[in-house]
Design a protein around this nucleic acid. Structure first.
Length: 806
DNA sequence: AGCACGCCGACT
DNA sequence: GTCGGCGTGCTC
């Protein structure tokens, strides 16, 4: 038999299946979707079996070396999906496969050197003995680093045959093992021997007694025994040595959510909720694929609909995938699912360690759970009988992966929904224009949830004109209204949430004398000040340096921080409202594991009066005593060079507004803006999605943007600006030739950040409605410049449906 | 990616 | 006449 294998080399020339024979002994293990190790030229590589056939057109095929997986890691469905992803996003098939698996399964390769001919080695290469003392293997890589001067000599030894080198394939996964002990004797024997333990060995007696007290003689974790009997590790070791206990290792899962969640029961649905869920349940019963766009305002009970739909899926013996944006994968959210479905739930998000993610993935793979709640990549959960896929906060741009494979989770979800004949629910209070337009056209089914479950009206929103404040002589970052409201909450013992979508202390540092802005020497972007270590940092390449005392341009000492980040707001708060207890949440303060959760819990317990934060506090939070939400700079992102910036602003303001007054107490929202008349502000304040949709659609239509046109973006980068723009120019011309006259081809233009890591960038954008030749043309372009990639460091990236234009 | 093959300049 | 530079092409 012959296996077709996609090898682990992300390259143009290897982006196709290679044929290998299957040795008799491996016959039963080699299955489609399993990973294998295959010889490839002089080395060994990991590969995925994509097909098995009886013969091959080639005359020389080499045999598969070994099989990694007992059970295939990719189902037939996922293999198909990988192929589709490669075609749609213009990535290599191997990249698509790897994107579907936890990072812990990514293989690494290293070359190791060991003694081949001991006699020859001792005779002729005694000088190398210190390196190869006791038949050790040495990694080539570390050798290069630590003993560079010996490389030449080692090469001689290799040539002479005294040393040999070979490839080591490291599949890199880390199964966590735990030491467990169990009695080596039967209950009665144990009881008897306990009586022979006389005199001093009290601790050992304690341990044996502990085992006697157990209901069944199962293995117990060493740590557990130590804790329960209050003995030291030495005691257990002695008992093992004496033969009373047997020590073994047991595979364990790392449990990121220790303990169980409080069980919750299904709530009675309102009429509106009934109307929204009913067609979904129908789809489930009829095994029909449809996409439901659940447009539910904050507090309308979307999650309960998800939960009850999943309930039905589980009753039917099927599985459910729930996607949640990374940022709102808060413990609060996870608890709701674990509370309803308990141990049936696996969780996948970036807060987990590599190993933890791998363990959660294995639970899914082994069929030990039937619900997965996770961020973008959880859409690839290796379930075999998917009953529903839910994407919460459907409009979030984090569902689009910004590196290869540049896929959108929504598209993958729909692919899988079609495959499994199951419904897909897209839920949002502020659907993306793309999705809402599709619902309007009847491609998706619209399920509106426009009432809040608790009948509470939306909180009143006021927009403050910050230009007005300035004119009135208020130069602080708080308007008079906001400041007054904050004071009032403090007095009443209620809580406030302040929202700012910038991190760090200030956005940039400017010289007041000459206007010089500190910028990164490698990227065309200003440096961001971080107070913690008094340094400025580039967010694109990581460049870092001490803040200069003098302006590097004119030598003036009047160097100042501009813009206001969360740190600066925090400082202002402590000066203006010294009695207020403030919790600041941004990327910097929540970097440590569990910090996010800790802050929110503390705020929930009322340990602070004001929660100040960035993006991450915009959604999902639900605190009883929050009655004021303030947005400090609502137009901060309105003017970003991105056609979605208006939409994003509207979504954010709506989202943030939903945080106030969700319970007994009435809430209020204050938005500070320099462009208060902008419709993203006024319509968000009126909670008027419909109107915003119409207005924004007009603007998109005028400018030929999605959802009226599809978009593709090509970014060329090179050390030399001329080369980058030259290639972009060539590409533009070629596209104009190949595509229909309907396509709008823009560029080449320099993107907002024209240089990153010392490489100049140039872009070309294509707007189109129907271009059957587009993907093929783009692929041809990639192939054409293939040679130039490695040779002269040219790089071309293609993004179908980009969400990040920078 | 690695590695071999292969074709032109500076050396014993 | 040979050693070695790295351009080109292949790996089932």
């Amino acid at each position: 038999m012959i296996a077709e294998v996609i090898v682990d080399l992300a390259l143009n020339q290897t982006d196709k299946p290679f044929d290998y024979s299957i040795p008799e002994s491996l016959q039963p293990l080699v299955e489609r979707g399993a990973r294998v190790i295959v010889p490839f030229g002089p080395r060994k590589l990991v590969g995925f079996v994509v097909a098995i056939k009886s013969d091959t057109a080639l005359e020389k095929v080499r045999p598969i070396h070994s099989v990694i997986d007992q059970t295939p890691v990719l189902t037939d469905e996922l293999l198909q999906l990988g192929k589709w992803l490669a075609k749609e996003t213009l990535c290599y098939e191997i990249s698509a496969f790897l994107a579907m698996l936890p990072a812990a399964m990514k293989a690494s390769y290293k070359k190791v050197i060991s003694v081949a001919d001991a006699g020859l080695f001792e005779n002729e290469f005694m000088d190398l003995l210190f390196l190869f003392k006791n038949g050790e293997q040495i990694e080539w890589e570390s050798l290069q680093k630590t003993h560079g001067s010996w490389l030449k000599r080692i090469k001689e030894a290799l040539q002479a045959g005294a040393l040999k080198e070979h490839q080591q394939v490291n599949q890199g996964q880390a199964v966590k093992k735990m030491k467990v002990v169990q009695p080596a004797l039967t209950y009665d024997e144990l009881k008897q021997s306990l009586e022979t333990f006389k005199g001093r060995a009290k601790k050992q007696r304690d341990v044996l007694t502990f085992f006697l007290e157990q209901e069944s003689p199962t293995a117990i974790a060493v740590n557990e025994v130590i804790r329960a009997t209050n003995v030291s590790r030495a005691t257990i070791k002695t008992l093992v040595q004496k033969g009373f206990l047997i020590e073994t290792e047991k595979e364990v899962y790392r449990d990121p959510f220790q303990g169980s969640a409080k069980p919750t029961i299904p709530l009675e649905l309102t009429d509106e909720q009934q109307a929204a869920i009913h067609p979904v349940l129908e789809d489930l019963d009829e095994r029909r694929h449809r996409v439901h766009l659940c447009h539910g305002v904050t507090g309308s009970g979307k999650t309960e609909i998800y939960l009850q739909a999943i309930q039905r899926v589980l009753e039917k013996g099927q599985e459910a995938i729930v996607l949640v944006p990374e940022i709102s994968l808060t413990p609060q959210m996870v608890e709701r699912f674990r509370g309803r479905f308990g141990d049936e739930v696996a969780v996948l998000h970036s807060g987990l360690s590599r190993g933890e993610k791998y363990d959660e993935w294995r639970k899914i793979h082994r069929g030990e759970v039937r619900v997965v709640v996770g961020a973008r990549s959880a859409v690839f959960a290796p379930f075999t009988n998917v009953g529903i896929i839910i994407i919460d906060e459907e409009h979030e741009t984090s569902y689009k992966q910004e590196e290869s494979p540049r896929y959108h989770a929504r598209d993958v979800a729909i692919f899988r929904g079609e495959f499994h004949h199951c419904p897909v629910i897209l839920g949002s209070a502020t659907p993306s224009l793309e999705s809402y337009a599709r619902a309007q056209k009847g491609v998706y089914r619209l399920a509106p949830l426009l009432k809040r479950v608790n009948q509470k009206p939306m909180p009143p929103v006021s927009i403050i004109d910050m230009r007005e404040e300035l004119r009135a002589g208020n130069r602080s970052m708080f308007s008079r209204d906001l400041f007054q409201s904050l004071q009032e909450r403090l007095r009443k013992g209620e809580q406030s949430v302040l929202f700012l979508n910038r991190r760090g202390y200030s956005t940039f540092i400017m010289c007041r004398d000459c206007g010089h802005v500190l910028s990164c020497p490698h990227c065309d972007i200003s440096l961001t000040f971080h107070r913690k270590n008094n340094k400025v940092k580039c967010h694109y390449c990581g460049f870092e340096e001490q803040v200069p005392h003098q302006c590097p341009s004119c030598g003036s000492e009047h160097i100042r921080f501009f813009g206001s980040g969360t740190q600066k707001v925090e400082e202002a708060l402590t000066t203006l409202l010294p009695e207020a207890r403030v919790i600041r949440m941004d990327v910097d303060t929540t970097r440590k594991k569990g910090a996010h959760e800790r802050f929110l819990k503390a705020f929930g317990r009322g340990e602070a009066d004001i929660l100040l934060g960035t993006q991450m506090i915009a959604k999902g939070l639900d605190f009883e005593k929050v009655t004021l939400v303030g947005v400090l700079a609502a137009d901060a992102m309105l003017h970003l060079p991105d056609f979605r910036s208006t939409e994003k602003t509207f979504q954010l303001l709506t989202q943030v507004g939903g945080r106030a007054g969700r319970h007994q107490l009435d809430g209020e929202v204050i938005i500070q803006s320099y462009t208060p008349e902008h419709y993203a502000m006024t319509l968000a304040a009126e909670h008027d999605y419909q109107h915003f949709y119409l207005k924004e659609m007009q603007s998109r239509k005028r400018h030929d943007y999605p959802p009226f046109y599809y978009l593709s973006l090509i970014t060329v980068s090179h050390e030399s600006f001329a080369r980058a723009s030259g290639v972009a120019e060539q590409i533009t011309r070629l596209l104009a030739q190949e595509l229909t006259s309907q396509a709008i081809i823009l560029g080449p233009v320099a993107p907002p950040i024209a240089r990153i890591k010392d490489r100049y960038r140039c872009q070309c954008m294509i707007k189109y409605k129907n271009e059957p030749k587009l993907k093929q043309t783009l692929k041809n372009i990639l192939d054409h410049y293939q040679g130039a990639f490695s040779k002269e460091g040219l790089s071309i990236s293609m993004d179908i449906d980009p969400y990040l234009m920078m």
